[in-house]
Write a protein that binds this DNA or RNA. Structure first.
Lengths: 252, 252
DNA sequence: ACATCCTTTGTGAAAAATTCACATTCTTCG
DNA sequence: CGAAGAATGTGAATTTTTCACAAAGGATGT
């Protein structure tokens, strides 16, 4: 068995996610199709790939698929969130210290983040995990009690943390917004963190897809006037946009 | 398209992980094999399964495979770690406050943990994530700078955290141990946390598979005499066991 | 109720992919 | 060098999948 060829095939599949036998035959004209089949069988046995009709698929590719599936199930409005994320990335600058809130919109945001040098502070575990894969940004996690529904830390300890931290830009998210109650969320301790961040940050950017508008949650942590930039999607109500701009907020 | 049949097929595949077309034909004799094929095609398009020669495989099953693969690659000594984990679980008591170190042995440990009422403090993201799935234990995450190689927080902020925290039992892990340098690890800040924990905890339990013995890392955080219980696997050197027991440490 | 349209299902032939068994070539090692 | 064993090639046999079209079923509007 030619080990080098198998290795090359494996790499190819890892990189491309999926490959057809026909393409393998094209790329390795020096061996017969049967040999390539046997190579794939080999790789399948070692658990790296899965043979499917017509070729093979990388197991890693598959796990990515699972993630997407999971995403779709648990997150509404994926399209809107991705759009918001892309708009928000433009506000990232090198050498800046940024706070990133927990929440699923923020997760899409970090997925878009460039691999450049800045400092991230967050209370969201998923955010931290995602960023840990990168090389560049330094990530500081706010400590505290972990709430299992949103995988974010909060609580008295967390507030203590902020005393020594400076934040240039804060990317915040909210569970709900209406004109009467402003931006609100579902837990007291979470709202405390958000308040602290708002007080600390030089620039406050709110990421909120339009499905949150017109709703209300128990704990208000900010008014419209507390933010500097509001990023949303196409479904954002025009009258609210006007009202925000009246207050000097740029709505994107 | 019969939605109910497709649903039943999907469930079957989810439960069994994998199914052959022949078996489907047996289970659904009221429809033709072509229909079943079309059902599978459908499910594949919606991303739930993957069709392979002769049948189909659940995507979830595949991702489980990936995890195992990942485990094998990144963790040596899985068997030993599982054994250690099982032994360690016996030291958990309700209403206690326990610290769980970051590290892969600890991860196996939390997977074994019962779903009862106690308080967990940890600096390991994976640990926190795993526990967040459970209902019972309350999890407090130590804040600080996240190091991407072991997904643990550490640094000056972390130490501050411990001032208000009490720990009944600490489950610690080490990257290396030898008689000269004691228990050691690869980062200064990590060793600071471990030291703090050791100073705070009433009972100190070290989880260490035997492959770590006889090695040394740059930063020592504890001596043999600093721990109360040492949990390892069968490969643990008898003379070291004797030496530890001499010091009043119970070696399990 | 009936005709019409659309969707789902069934059928068997055609195509494609995969396996198999055996021949051949290439290595390696005594 | 020669024999044994591994790797590869070949073409036929087998299996699986696809395809195209027919039949059946169901909804809808007149």
């Amino acid at each position: 068995m030619n080990h080098e060829r198998i290795e090359r095939i494996s790499e190819l599949i890892q990189k491309r996610g999926r490959i057809s036998l026909d393409e393998l035959i094209e790329r390795f004209p020096e061996v017969s199709s049967m040999t390539l089949r046997r190579d794939l069988l080999n790789l399948e046995e070692s658990g790296v790939i899965l043979r499917v009709r017509g070729g093979a698929i990388s197991v890693r590719e598959l796990s990515k698929k699972t993630e997407e599936l999971f995403d779709k199930r648990h997150n509404q409005n994926v399209a809107a969130k991705k759009i918001i994320a892309q708009k928000a990335v433009k506000f990232i600058e090198t050498e800046h210290s940024v706070f990133i809130d927990s929440g699923s919109t923020a997760l899409y945001f970090v997925k878009e983040l460039p691999d450049i040098n800045y400092y991230v502070v967050t209370n969201g575990l998923s955010i931290a995990m995602e960023l840990a894969r990168r090389t560049m940004p330094s990530v500081t996690l706010i400590g505290g009690v972990l709430s299992s529904n949103n995988l974010a830390t909060s609580g008295g300890m967390s507030k203590l943390f902020f005393e020594d931290i400076n934040i240039d830009t804060a990317f915040l998210s909210a569970t709900a917004f209406n004109e009467e109650n402003g931006f609100s969320c579902g837990s007291q301790s979470e709202s405390e963190i958000k308040k602290t961040v708002i007080a600390k940050a030089k620039k406050r950017i709110m990421l909120m897809d339009s499905s949150k508008v017109g709703k209300s949650m128990p704990f208000t942590f900010a008014r419209l006037s507390d933010v500097d930039v509001l990023i949303s999607d196409d479904g954002f109500p025009a009258e609210l946009k006007a009202a925000a701009e009246e207050l000097g907020i740029s709505v994107i």
